[in-house]
């Protein structure tokens, strides 16, 4: 006998997940436009893997397939991981990543709604620790690439590892702007020297990638307008990056890149609107979300600048996921009619 409302508003988990995917589309299109077919192949491959792995995990755990496969959460995880990897990454990289994302981070923790870590970011973290070489071979922006791979050529590179005759690896891959800066600084160059030595830098971020970041921002704003994500997390996340990077840049402009440069990396925008906003592994109170976002933004820059990895978004978000129960417990807003404590 139920006592809860006998009527339900239209809406479902599936709808939420589909809207997230829809809002990712501008970013995906910009990505394909600037970097070629690789990302499309990645997304399709990741989606297939996600469905297969999700089905397998559900079957092993004795859960019904239909309601859980159709909730769309596995596809969202797949897209987020695929968008975080180099577009021309070998096929097995996504396989390994998705096994950890869906199998370990999601289902070993109890499946939908139970995971304490963002599954896509767990997959990413495993990959970047285990396969640093493959994870830093980013596609070169088409504008700079000596050769632009056709769809068929991309497919055979991803699944067979073979490039067309006469095309060297250097012609299709390059380091990301963030990575270029890191490597340059390690070699004791100044930022100005690094900038003038490489063509990868665009007007504020990297060639091509700044467009992708802008498209993510657009999709992210749509996601907020649709009331799927709260404003607190993305705003605080971006503010955290901006403030931390700004402070470092102010302290030593020769060593630390400008805050706009940090924000123009696609990972920052993807992280701010689509990853840090994951409700399952994120904070739920308004103040908690601001703390969560600020912390993740701060850690992102710290890891980018002082850490051993070219990007820090994944680790920053995973670390903040750890703090969520504590943040939530200490930021409970007053209930109706509760005297403000102090």
């Amino acid at each position: 006998m139920t006592a809860s409302a006998h009527i339900l508003q239209k809406g479902s988990v599936t709808r939420v997940m589909l809207l997230v995917l829809a809002c990712l589309l501008p970013g995906v299109l910009a990505y394909a436009w600037q970097f070629g077919w690789g990302i499309v192949i990645n997304l399709v491959w990741a989606s297939l893997l996600a469905l297969a792995l999700e089905a397998l995990a559900l079957r092993l755990r004795g859960y019904p397939l239909k309601p859980f496969l159709s909730d769309g959460s596995a596809i969202v995880t797949a897209w987020l991981l695929a968008l975080s990897l180099p577009p021309l990454a070998p096929w097995w990289l996504l396989l390994v990543g998705m096994i950890f994302a869906i199998g370990v981070a999601k289902h070993l923790y109890g499946g939908l709604g139970q995971n304490i870590f963002n599954p896509a970011m767990v997959g990413f973290a495993v990959l970047i620790i285990s396969f640093p070489v493959q994870m830093t071979q980013w596609s070169a922006p088409l504008a700079l690439a000596a050769h632009s791979l056709s769809f068929g050529e991309s497919l055979s590179f991803v699944f067979g590892g073979t490039l067309p005759a006469g095309v060297a690896l250097d012609a299709v891959v390059s380091a990301t702007p963030l990575d270029t800066v890191r490597t340059g600084l390690l070699q004791q160059h100044t930022l100005d020297e690094i900038h003038s030595a490489s063509q990868i830098f665009g007007s504020i971020g990297g060639v091509g990638s700044e467009w992708v970041a802008a498209a993510y921002l657009l999709g992210g704003i749509a996601l907020w307008a649709l009331r799927i994500v709260p404003w607190q997390v993305p705003v605080a996340f971006l503010a955290g990056i901006w403030l931390t990077a700004g402070f470092l840049h102010w302290a030593d402009a020769g060593r630390y890149a400008a805050p706009w440069f940090q924000l123009a990396a696609p990972s920052a925008m993807l992280g701010a609107f689509f990853i840090a906003t994951d409700p399952v592994s994120g904070a739920t109170t308004p103040r908690g979300r601001i703390i969560f976002g600020l912390g993740a933004g701060f850690l992102t820059v710290i890891i980018r600048v002082f850490g051993g990895y070219p990007d820090g978004v994944a680790f920053a978000i995973l670390l903040m996921n750890l703090c969520v129960p504590l943040i939530d417990a200490y930021t409970q807003p007053p209930v109706f009619g509760e005297a403000k404590k102090k």
Binding site: G11, V13, S73, L112, P230, P279
Partner: peptide
């Protein structure tokens, strides 16, 4: 379905 903490 399980709660996804969407806070709607």
């Amino acid at each position: 379905l399980p709660c996804i903490r969407c806070t709607q």
